[in-house]
Design a protein around this nucleic acid. Structure first.
Length: 565
RNA sequence: GCCUCAGUAGUUCAGUUGGUAGAACACUACAUUGGUAAUGUAGAGGUCCUGAGUUCAAUCCUCAGCUGAGGCUCCA
């Protein structure tokens, strides 16, 4: 529940029109409107989370009494004011809470209760003293009395997510994800991915590749906690500018935020030890899982989720090093995107309304980003006002199967976080100086990137990324033993090869069909002819080659798997 | 969150002008030993998303909610 209390000389209101259908009609007296003088006007908004009616009423009454006592008010005006919240409770709940609070407050005050569910005009004259205007929020945690489900009912409600495929293309990643058994979603965790074994293999391969490239590019890697004390987010400015996206939790009466970004954790690692100019540029990566509360209507497959893994990294450097470091990050992004033949567009997002830091800082940061874009000779679009609250950014956008573009890579210049966290290093002249920070991500989110990847390749991933790289089919039961021998040989020759088999007693075309739906890049058939000649039949990208020598196949496969590096 | 649409078997879908449901594929069993996107027969599978209301009766009608899809807005 949120409320705003105003200590007023007078308040006057009049209901004009019903705002809600199912609301009681007014009495003649109420229709005329009312006026109160020397009162504490309490503008209220009951929210969805206020399900624990008694607790909410008790807290609210306690707060109002406390304020009234401080300002010595004897009259109270309860004034429903929905605009305080974007997450309102049902009218029934709101009316219940307000009526109960009114009853309670009547014991010690004169109470005027403005009608609920009407558009009202009102006039106030507020006293100017320090306590005359206060806003408060009441959050009741703990058990939810209404949510007393028996287990059977709960089980009934948990259905898995049914996809409406009417508008989707054949190569939509959500359809591919089902066919290739990569991931799923469930109502119990909207916007959060259940990774199946096959999907996790892709994610892990991308992570391995990322680690290798970053190690070579001079990056360190860290991991920071999932939940951190609310006060940290107040320092970083997230509490002020990003609060509606943050999940909250608590531990022994302390409020914690589930991290929506990795940077504050990274800053704490930086501060853990004194830094010298010799440590710079300091490049620190973190494959961090973040949670963000997003408007439910924007969620969609892997492209927009609530929980995701960012391939985050922060580069701490001096002002002199900034330009070259930005260029190096851009090189790295190009390396990754060309690896997957991605076409991308680049956009520059400038200062938003909700921001921290001075205009001087923003000018500096925006100018340097423009400069590197021009040095790289990249064509770019400018998005005015779309930067992050702590700095401007360069975004890399990639297209999906429906022609929509999604932001993946991002580079952000930040002068403000180092300031807020008082980051320092000792320079050559033995003076303490403030570093500059670059935030950057290349995949952006592993989830989104995998979605794009699947659509880009229509499920036919390069061999090194494919969850199942080779499937061996037997022609008849006669060939099963020989096929098993071949599997063993391949596994011995190629370590970590992802190979499986299909020895079912069904026709070859049926087995081929199943393997093709799984988008397995290499389908190998072993029949009587192959067994006699000690060869194999290989199907790749829909084309079949008969009489292939095993050694040649192994050689080709090895090369494709090594493509990763 | 807002607007529009959707939710029936593991999957893709049909169906009931209100009388608790069907196919194909997948699964299991049996037969079959096959040459590169679907071998045959049989069996098993469902609180028709959840809750409330209307009704003698609701999967179907009404209302509320949950989830998904497209768009808006917001973002990686």
């Amino acid at each position: 529940m949120k409320f705003l209390s105003l200590h007023v000389d007078s308040i006057k209101f009049k209901p004009l029109k019903k705002a809600l259908k199912k609301i009681q009609n007014l009495t003649e007296k109420q229709k005329k409107g009312e006026e109160a003088k020397e009162a504490l006007a309490v503008l209220t908004a009951v929210e969805k989370i206020d399900k624990n009616v008694e607790e909410v009423v008790r807290e609210f009454v306690k707060n109002v009494k406390e304020i009234a006592k401080q300002v010595k008010a004897k009259n109270i005006v309860l004034y429903p004011y929905a605009h305080l919240s974007s997450n309102l409770a049902s009218p029934e709940l709101a009316v219940e809470i307000l009526n109960k609070a009114e009853k309670e407050l009547r014991k010690s005050f004169n109470v005027v209760h403005a009608p609920f569910g009407y558009y009202k005009e009102f006039e106030v004259k507020v006293k100017g003293h320090p306590l005359s205007e206060l806003s408060r929020e009441i959050v009741i945690g703990g058990e939810d009395k209404e949510e007393k489900y028996d287990e059977k009912q709960l089980l009934r409600e948990i259905s898995k997510t049914k996809l409406d495929t009417s508008k989707l293309k054949e190569n939509d990643h959500r359809i591919l994800g089902q066919q290739m058994d990569l991931f799923s979603f469930n109502e119990t965790a909207p916007g959060m991915v259940f990774w199946h074994n096959n999907g996790l293999i892709i994610r892990n391969e991308l992570i391995d590749f990322w680690r290798e490239v970053h190690k070579n590019a001079g990056y360190k890697e860290i991991a920071t906690p999932q939940i951190l004390d609310k006060r940290l987010w107040q320092i970083s400015g997230h509490w002020e500018k990003y609060r509606e996206n943050i999940f909250l939790t608590e531990y022994e009466k302390r409020q914690f935020a589930v991290k929506p970004m990795n940077c504050p954790g990274g800053l704490l690692v930086f501060k853990n030890k004194p830094k010298s100019y010799k440590d710079f540029p300091l490049r620190v990566g973190e494959l961090g899982i973040v949670h963000r509360q997003e408007l439910s209507g924007v969620l969609g497959g892997l492209f927009r989720v609530i929980q995701f893994m960012q391939d985050d990294a922060h580069v701490f450097c001096t002002e002199k090093q900034l330009e070259i470091e930005l260029l190096r990050v851009m090189d790295l992004i190009e390396l990754f995107y060309s690896k997957f033949d991605f076409k991308y567009s680049v956009e520059l997002s400038t200062r938003p309304e909700k921001r921290i830091g001075s205009d001087k800082m923003w000018n500096k940061a925006e100018n340097i980003l423009k400069k590197v874009l021009e040095r790289k000779k990249l064509k770019y679009k400018i998005n005015e006002g779309e930067g992050v609250f702590y700095g401007p950014k360069i975004d890399y956008h990639i297209e999906d199967s429906l022609g929509r573009t999604w932001q993946c890579g991002t580079i952000q210049v930040d002068f403000s976080m180092p300031e807020r966290f008082e980051l320092e290093y000792t320079d050559k002249d033995n003076k303490r100086k403030r570093p500059i920070m670059i935030h950057r991500a290349i995949y952006g989110s592993l989830e989104r990137f995998i979605g794009i990847l699947l659509e880009h390749y229509k499920g036919r991933l390069p061999t090194w990324l494919a969850p199942i790289q080779v499937r061996i089919l037997s022609f008849t039961d006669r060939n099963e033993a020989h096929a098993k021998k071949i599997i063993k040989e391949l596994e011995d020759e190629i370590p970590n090869l992802r190979i499986d088999s299909d020895f079912r007693q069904i026709t070859v075309p049926a087995k081929v069909k199943d393997a093709e739906i799984m988008r397995i890049p290499w389908i190998v058939l072993v029949g009587d002819k192959e067994q006699d000649k000690n060869t194999i039949a290989v199907r790749h990208e829909g084309k079949v080659k008969y009489g292939v020598k095993k050694d040649n196949f192994i050689k080709e496969l090895k090369e494709l798997i090594e493509e990763r590096i």
